[in-house]
Amino acid sequence: MEIEQLEKVASQVRRDIVRMVHGCQSGHPGGSLGCTDLLVALYFERMKLKEQDGKGVFDMNGTDEDMFFLSNGHISPVWYSVLARKGYFPVSELATFRKLNSRLQGHPTTHEHLEGIRIASGSLGQGMSVAIGAALSKKLNNDKGIVYVLMGDGEQQEGQVWEAATFAPHHQVDNLVAFIDLNGQQIDGPTVKVMNNRDLGAKYEAFGWEVISIEEGNDMAAVLKGLYEAKGRLGHGRPIMVLLHTGMGYGVDFMMGSHKWHGVAPNDEQLAAALAQLEETLGDY
């Protein structure tokens, strides 16, 4: 897909995000908006996926395809939107987000059998371990697919992340690309104030990872380039860590750069103001 088309998908995904969160008056728009460009780039361009007539076809085992895991499950709106827009399930189902009897639970789950989800996430710090397991499974199956996992920067405060960070280089899990969404914000404020992670790149390098940065994580061209670079470094005995610099709330001016929109829904006026900034490209659900 051309960059221009990917940007159009991203604009629609951002509309979906704010509409979903508005629709149930709950959820996490900030991180979702910030990671939109990454997920669109992965699902619509970089990942090798099973498809039929241009639509994603879900296979729990992910045999002979790439897989994505979302460890910071609270940014479920962006993932749900991207999965629906990719064709894994009807776009109309986005309207059920966080409502009773929905498959689109507040945090992603396999429990409701939503196509595209392979593990529950939400309690932080677990996704990288799961992704490593899936990557090991691929190696045992002689499957050349790549495993991608996204974590938050606040999430780096969980101890389990560092158990996984130690494991992956030791076991040469070199079919794994991990991302940290470096938006610098968490619920209680700026990450440097709540609990300073300091130099995450240096930490992962010291743990034995190959570390690269995408400085403009909300620039589609930069994201595509970074993903290309990450893929090129696989298969040499080391897992890849991508430091993805994003703006929390990117795309909606009054949500940008503040922890205040981590887990708050817009009211009717704010929704209108947000949608005015986001072009409807694929048709609202």
């Binding site: 897989m67 371990s129 490593i132 397991g133 899936a134 990557a135 389990q160």
Partner: peptide, 15 residues
Amino acid sequence: ANMIGISAGLTIGGK
């Protein structure tokens, strides 16, 4: 904790 997570991941792919 990591062992449990890795175990869950290994099931994806049929292990």
